[in-house]
Design a protein around this nucleic acid. Structure first.
Lengths: 201, 201
DNA sequence: ATACAAGTGGAGCAACCCTCCACTTTGTGG
DNA sequence: CCACAAAGTGGAGGGTTGCTCCACTTGTAT
C-alpha cells in the first residue's frame, strides 16, 4: 500500500528526438509493420470494411495487438494508405510546372477520387481518414490547401472556397461512383461541374 | 408427386385495383403501420442505424414480421420517410410561383439536405433511399427532375447536369454536415458553390 | 542475472443481422 | 356457420463482427 511511488523515477515516455514519435520495442515495431502490410492487402482485396480480425489473422498477430496499435478503423486506414497518399501529393507537386492553377486543382481532385475508389468503402469517411495523423494524409491535405491558395492568388477560384469544400466534393463523387459503379467519364463530369462552380465569374 | 397442379387455379395475387398495391390481411396491415410508426420514432431518436430488432420490439412485433414486410433497411427508411418526403415535394411545388427557376432549385436542395440531416445516418445512402418504391420518394424525385428541366428550359442551368448530380451534391453536403456538425451557413455555402457550378456561363 | 515495463494473444461478451419453420389467425366458399 | 387453405407471425438460432480485458511472455536497461 505504501506503493512504489517513493522511488518512482519520473521517466518521460521515450520518444525519438527527431520525429517526436513514441519509440516502439523492436518486436512491436515489426508487428506494426506486419499489420500495415496485411491491412493494405486486405483493404485492396475486399474493400475497407473487411473484418479487422481477418486482418489480424493475416498479419499473424492477435486482435488485441491490432487494436492497441490502431484504436479505430480510420487510424488503420490512414496508416495503411499513408504511402499512397504520399505518392499522390508528390505527383501533384511534380505536375506543378506544366499545369495552370485550375488544371492543377482538377488533376488533384480527380486523383483523390481515383485513390479513394481503389479502396472501396472509405468514401464516406474520406474526411475523417484525411485528418488522420499520418505523413501521407498530412502531405495530401497540405498539397490540397496549397493548390487552393495558389488558384485563389491567381484569381481563378472563388475566395470563399476552402480545402474542406474540396474534400466534401471528392467524397460526394467517390460515393456516387461507389454506388452506381459509374464510369470515369461521370467522375470527370462531376469534377467539371464543381470546378465550374468555384471559378470566379 | 402428381401434385396439386392439375386443378390449381391461376389466382393472380390479389391487388387493389386502384393503387396496384398488394392487399394485406387486416392484421398484417395494422402491424405494418405499427412498424412504420415505431421506425419513424426510433430513427428520429437514435439515427438511421438503430437496431432493427429494437424497432420491432417497440412496434410489438417479431423481427421476422419486420423483415418480411421490409426486406432491407433502405426499404424501411424509404417507407418511414414517405410522408415527410411527400411534404417536401408539395412545399416545393407550392413555392413555384414566387421563385425564379434557379432559386427554386436552391430551395429544393437546401430542403433536401435539411430533411436528410434530421434522420442522421442516411446521408450516405440518400441515393438508394430515394430510389425506394414509395409515394414520398417518387414525389421528391419527380419534383427534383421537374425543377432541373424547368431551369434548363429557362437556360439558367447547364444542359449536362442531371437530377442524379443534384442528389450527389445533396449527399455530399449532408455527409459533411453530419461529420463536422457544421452550421446552417455551411450548408448554404456549399449549395451556393454548387449552384455557381451548374449555372450557364 | 534480474526485474520491470512493454507487449501479446485470444477467450469472452455483447451487438447485430437475417433465416427458417412450427404455430396462429384470417376470411372465404360451401 | 364452419372448415380449411392461405396468409401471417414470432422468436430461437446460427453466423459475423467489434472491442475489452488480463494472465502471460518478451525485450532491454542496469
Amino acid at each position: 500500500m505504501y506503493s512504489g511511488g517513493i522511488l518512482q523515477l519520473q521517466v518521460a515516455k521515450k520518444k525519438s528526438s527527431r520525429t517526436g514519435e513514441v519509440l516502439l520495442r523492436a518486436d512491436a515495431q515489426l508487428n506494426r509493420e506486419r499489420i500495415l502490410a496485411a491491412a493494405e492487402e486486405m483493404f485492396l482485396e475486399h474493400g475497407a470494411n473487411v473484418s479487422l480480425e481477418d486482418v489480424a489473422k493475416r498479419a499473424n498477430v492477435g486482435i488485441g495487438t491490432l487494436y492497441r496499435r490502431f484504436p479505430t478503423r480510420e487510424a488503420l486506414l490512414g496508416a495503411a494508405y499513408s504511402a499512397r497518399f504520399l505518392e499522390l501529393a508528390e505527383a501533384s507537386r511534380a505536375r506543378d510546372g506544366e499545369l495552370t492553377p485550375t488544371e492543377s486543382v482538377r488533376a488533384y481532385l480527380e486523383q483523390l477520387v481515383l485513390h479513394t475508389n481503389v479502396y472501396r468503402g472509405i468514401a464516406g469517411s474520406l474526411g475523417t481518414v484525411l485528418q488522420t495523423d499520418t505523413p501521407g494524409c498530412h502531405a495530401t491535405s497540405d498539397e490540397g490547401r496549397r493548390l487552393v491558395r495558389r488558384a485563389q492568388k491567381a484569381g481563378v477560384i472563388r475566395r470563399d472556397v476552402t480545402f474542406e469544400d474540396l474534400v466534401c466534393v471528392a467524397t460526394a463523387i467517390s460515393l456516387a461512383s461507389e454506388q452506381s459503379a459509374s464510369s470515369k467519364s461521370r467522375v470527370a463530369h462531376l469534377v467539371d461541374v464543381f470546378l465550374g462552380g468555384i471559378a470566379s465569374r
